[in-house]
Structure formats: C-alpha cells, structure tokens
Simulated scan of single mutants.
Amino acid sequence: MTQMARVFIAITLSMLAACATGQRMHYVDASAWSANYTEDYIQDFWIQTADGKDTGLSGVQVKEFSAGGTGGSECCSLIPGVGQTIKVVWRVGGHQEDESTWKTYSRDVEVKGAMPTRKDAYNILMVRFFPGQQVEAELIPDRGEPGGSASPRVDQLFYGQRVMRHIGE
C-alpha cells in the first residue's frame, strides 16, 4: 500500500470514530425527576434535543406545589449533558378537564449541574417548573449512596418538605 493510501485510510477511520463517539461523548444516561413550584397540574412532559428529536425521557402527573409538587420518576434515557441545550415540552390541564383544553408549552433550556464521574452513578435530570411557564433542568450526577445521605441538589419536595425554590437556586 502506498504511503498516501495509508494516510487516507487513517484519516477516514479517525473521522468515522469521531462521528461514532462524538454524540455520546456529551450525552449522559439519566432518569427524569420533576419538581413543580406552580399551582398548575402538569399532565406530562418530555425531553427533546435542541433540534426537536425525542430523547425517550419523559414524566407524568406532576402535582401542584400545594399537593406535594412532585411527579413520578422515569428511567432512563441518553440525553444531552451539562452545557448542552434541551427542549422541555409539557402539558398543563386539570385532573378532570378534557384533554382538548390542556395547554402545551415548550422551552429551550441549557442543562445545568455536573457530569457524572462514576460510570455506575444513578443520574437524575431534575426538571423544575416555575410560574410564568419557566422551566430549568439540572443534571444531578448521583442521588446519593445507598444508606448514606442524599444529594443536597435533590429538591426538598421529594422528602415531604414543601420548601419553595426559585429559578436559578
């Protein structure tokens, strides 16, 4: 093989490897948890990439703040990591309202938080809903060790304490 052919093959293989790993390099496997600091009942929400592709991560039945403010957690999906933009889409409607009356909102948000340092970490994408259809997303790289203390970044609502948070806290 000529020197030129070897260089061409090496460059091509390098580019293919970069394409194959580049997307995953800034992505992380996480569960979706939700905290609602509004009095809107959030029927469901889902996470998309910035260009609108579904990530497969979603949540349902996020209670109003006065009713506890949490929703069930959904496990797990590969999502854009810290510093990347995601689109959060959610639907608001009363418990007994017809689905045709629900309102849909979406916001592009930058994922805040920290990337995991352990491969076996249980990662949480904490999606927080605030008044005025504001939302934020924080990656919490581990919710805490079994038998140990939980991550201080997990909202107090998950421990039965109605502590109001504000966007950016």
Rank of each mutant, 00 (worst) to 15 (best):
N123W: 05
W102V: 03
Y122I: 12
V111W: 02
E145S: 00
Y37A: 06
Y27K: 07
K87A: 01
S14E: 10
V60N: 14
Q43I: 15
V92H: 06
F65W: 14
K63G: 13
C19V: 10
V109Y: 07
H95C: 03
I124N: 07
S34F: 08
S73C: 01
M15K: 01
P146Y: 01
Y122L: 11
T38R: 08
W33M: 10
G81E: 04
T21A: 08
G71L: 04
Q61R: 15
V88K: 00
T101Q: 15
F65N: 14
C75S: 06
L16H: 00
G72R: 11
E99D: 13
T21I: 11
D44C: 08
K119T: 12
G69L: 07
V109A: 08
V62R: 09
E97S: 13
D142K: 12
A30P: 01
Q61A: 14
A35V: 14
T38Y: 05
G52D: 12
F129G: 03
G52H: 14
Q23I: 15
E110Y: 03
A20M: 09
S73P: 05
N36M: 09
F65M: 14
N36D: 12
K63W: 15
G52A: 11
V60F: 14
S66I: 12
P80M: 09
T12P: 00
P131H: 08
T70W: 06
R107Y: 02
P131Y: 06
R107S: 13
T70M: 11
V92S: 02
D51K: 11
W90S: 00
K87H: 00
K119E: 10
M115R: 09
M25E: 10
L16N: 07
G144T: 03
E74G: 13
G93M: 02
T101E: 10
V92D: 04
I140S: 04
E136C: 01
D29N: 04
L139Q: 07
G81H: 01
A67V: 06
D142Q: 10
I124F: 07
F130T: 02
Y122A: 13
T55L: 13
S34K: 11
T12A: 03
V92M: 02
S31W: 09
L125T: 03
K63Q: 15
